[in-house]
Design a protein around this nucleic acid. Structure first.
Length: 594
DNA sequence: AGTGTCTGCCC
DNA sequence: ATTCTGC
DNA sequence: GCAGAATGGGCAGACACT
């Protein structure tokens, strides 16, 4: 259902008063020039403040406007006259228009690109008008947003401060010129379509995107998939496979508002043929996209912007932008605080329990600071099929704080350790392009079959991943061996020679648990006639490259019983609970986020 | 109506 | 979920 | 220590396909 409210949501839900104000004035057409239309006090800062404050209310308005418009997506598309066109005609009608000739799209882009660098200035030195190549009130070009966020800007920066400054300046630019677009810009750059607690999702995944992409560029799905594997970035694939259909008439340039609206429409589509409709919307965006736009459109759809910038940075930038554009004399009324939301959540929870005739009960607990005692209690809990313990300090005032990790509440869990061979791998994506992103581990029951047990994609340092990828690349075979047994839903990109032929090297893997798996085949037939066993939270510990290894875990061992696995080793964590020599299992402590 | 695929969400 | 990396 | 970006198993619900 609804997720935990984030700081982002809290911020975005500011100033309902402004909402009321705006709702009473719904005529304010976004495509009209703001200066004259709103005729707010001459003091710009006030206008900007309103813009910042009204982020949420505006969103609500937009939602309702698109929602009430028409059920049919196409017509609602059409109804929203293209913002750029509107503005252009506006300008043409206006006798005193500053810019006599509308620039061509290319000219605009060139201008934008040449100016965009100054976003890097310290906010104090930044003139929020200096980079805008659109007029006040004109819809902000989508390209602007993603030139800022990606092109030579953020993606080439690694310092948080600089990135925050850039985003801050970007937001200020929008606030200054087209405050109506702020909501869309903020949501887009947060890669969201609605506040988290509303649970609105686009319902678009890689598979749908690949289909849309294939149709958009007239290629085959398989081809797109291969490109994806090769390039590790669907966005790049989109960018490079430009539409093959010649476009006689270039659609109007994408705007921030247009993209955001379309995303909302996509999110709202449901029921029969909804997938088809979503695909259509995506294609329509792609057709209109130029430059690096396809790349970021696709990345947005995937919710993988991966430019080293995400919610927290946006938050900081938003706050900073607000500081630069207003005087924060009075906090907006009725800002719902995170605390409020939490309380609300609890009430809902209790109602829910009542409905379902649930009840509370105290967890089994001990009070102790004796390590051995805790250790025994942990083992008892594990024997009782619990995941582990929650440890809570009694010294400090350890209240539960949602979404926060602290050392006052800790999860205490056990780990399993074992060694597995590798029979396959998957191409890495993003920063793992060109290396394998995950490996298919298996175990070998008495040398007759290699049965898949899990994929492993975490625990690799970059160096290890590089090395492993390099050394395994020479072991690639075209088809899985007949004695590789692996669930049908698991399709590695690459298969490897069996490890007998390799120089023996297997993975030391740790896991939180063993589970009966519908997908993996380890020890199939032992625990279940059709199901195998898999690992929960598998994670690479190290790679054993010795020539004379002990054998990897055998079928008998795994098959015995989940939760009863012989544990390999004993390695204490940074925060030791007990001396390693006494541990039979690794104690993994983490702060508790519940 | 039954099965398969995809997505989101949980951990 | 777990983990690694750069700041 | 934080933020971000890689990656895991498994399940339920929604659609699409047959």
């Amino acid at each position: 259902m609804s997720r935990r409210p984030s700081a982002f949501d809290a911020l975005m839900s500011g100033a309902r008063a402004a909402a009321a104000k705006r709702k009473s004035n719904p005529e304010a057409s976004p495509s009209k020039k703001r200066k004259s239309a709103e005729s707010k006090p001459p003091l710009v800062t006030n206008g900007e403040k309103a813009a910042v404050d009204s982020v949420k209310p505006e969103l609500e308005m937009e939602i309702s406007s698109t929602g009430n418009g028409t059920a049919d997506a196409a017509s609602s598309d059409a109804k929203q006259c293209d913002p750029v066109e509107c503005v252009k005609s506006d300008a043409a009608e206006e006798p005193g228009a500053k810019k006599p000739r509308a620039m061509t799209a290319e000219e605009r882009r060139a201008e934008l690109k040449s100016k965009i660098g100054s976003l890097k200035k310290k906010p104090a030195d930044f003139d929020p008008r200096s980079v805008a190549c659109w007029e006040d009130g004109e819809r902000v070009p989508f390209l602007f947003l993603f030139l800022c966020l990606a092109f030579d800007m953020i993606s080439n920066e690694s310092g948080r401060i600089v990135i925050t400054d850039i985003v801050c300046n970007m937001l200020r630019t929008i606030i200054k010129t087209t405050p109506d677009d702020l909501v869309a810009a903020v949501y887009l750059s947060a890669n969201r379509v609605a506040p988290a607690h509303e649970g609105v999702e686009m319902g678009i995944g890689d598979a749908s995107i690949i289909k849309a992409l294939a149709e958009a560029c007239g290629g085959k799905e398989a081809h797109i998939k291969n490109q994806y594997k090769e390039k590790g970035d669907l966005g790049l694939v989109a960018k490079e496979s430009r539409s093959s259909q010649s476009m006689m008439r270039k659609p109007a340039a994408l705007t921030v508002a247009k993209v955001f609206d379309t995303f909302r429409i996509i999110a709202k589509e449901s029921g029969k043929d909804s997938q088809e409709k979503k695909k259509k919307h995506i294609k329509s965006l792609l057709v209109a996209a130029t430059d690096c736009e396809p790349q970021y459109l696709i990345r947005l759809l995937q919710a993988k912007l991966r430019i080293g910038y995400a919610e927290q940075t946006l938050l900081a930038a938003l706050g900073q932008a607000a500081l630069y554009t207003e005087n924060h004399s009075k906090p907006p009324p009725h800002v719902s605080s995170p605390l409020e939301e939490v309380i609300t959540g609890q009430i809902i929870f209790m109602i829910h329990l009542k409905k379902n005739k649930g009840y509370f009960e105290f967890a089994t607990s001990i009070t102790s600071n004796d390590l051995e005692e805790i250790q025994n209690f942990l083992e008892a809990s594990v024997d009782g099929s619990c995941e582990g313990l929650i440890i809570k300090t009694l010294d400090t005032d350890a209240t539960y704080e949602p979404s926060k990790r602290s050392n006052n509440w800790l999860k205490l869990k056990k780990d399993y350790m074992d060694r597995w061979d590798t029979i396959g791998a998957f191409h890495g994506r993003g920063k793992r392009t060109c290396v394998y992103g995950a490996f298919l581990a298996c175990y070998d029951p008495d040398n007759e079959e290699f049965q898949s047990i899990c994929k492993i994609g975490t625990g690799f340092s970059e160096v290890v991943l590089e090395e492993r990828s390099a050394s395994l690349r020479s072991k690639v075979i075209t088809k899985p061996k007949s004695y590789y047994r692996c669930g049908e839903t698991i399709n590695p990109d690459i298969w490897f020679e069996p490890t007998e032929i390799n120089d023996f090297s297997c993975f030391s893997v740790k896991a939180a648990d063993l589970t009966i798996s519908p997908a993996h085949q380890a020890a199939v037939g032992i625990v279940d006639p059709a199901k195998g066993i898999s690992l929960r939270f598998p994670c690479l510990l190290c790679i054993r490259d010795d020539k004379n290894p002990e054998q990897a875990t055998s079928s008998a061992q795994v098959g015995q019983c989940p939760n009863k696995m012989p544990s390999g080793m004993i390695k204490a964590d940074d925060r030791k609970l007990c001396p390693p020599s006494r541990c039979r299992m690794k104690l993994s402590m983490e702060s508790c986020a519940v």
